[in-house]
Amino acid sequence: MAEPARAKPKPTPETQHFWDGTKAGELRLQRCDACANIYFPPRPFCPSCASRKVSVFKASGKGKLYSYVINHRPAAPGFTPPYAIAVVELDEGPRMMSNIIDCPQTPEALELDMPLEVAFEALDDKITLPLFRPAKG
């Protein structure tokens, strides 16, 4: 029997650009053309001023560790505990949930506000997840 896989996102028309971006190695955010608000998760209007004039742009992929838990039990399918579930604050402002790779999953190694950079992990030929690793230099 196959190992249970991690939950896989299924894009909608409003989020497809984001998942196309991660597949192409880009972290894409949206900016309101009317009020300049940068927001996440994706939607075709600005949640701050309700303008429908919004643009997709490539984010820097840099951020910092805002908060996290190290999950021991119960573990989600496809994960080996203990593993950190992190919230990353992107340099552009929005926050997103992710995992921290190339880093021990311990309170000592995972310091709040540590600089992070995006890394991409393909789940299959359609979906690539944005993960984060400690920033180099």
Binding site: R6, A7, N71, M97
Partner: peptide, 24 residues
Amino acid sequence: LNGQFEAPFGVYGPPSMFPIPVLR
């Protein structure tokens, strides 16, 4: 939105989600 932007990162029931803000 939860299925796309939270579930893939290993949240699995309230114990893995509710405490996420507490370290901050």
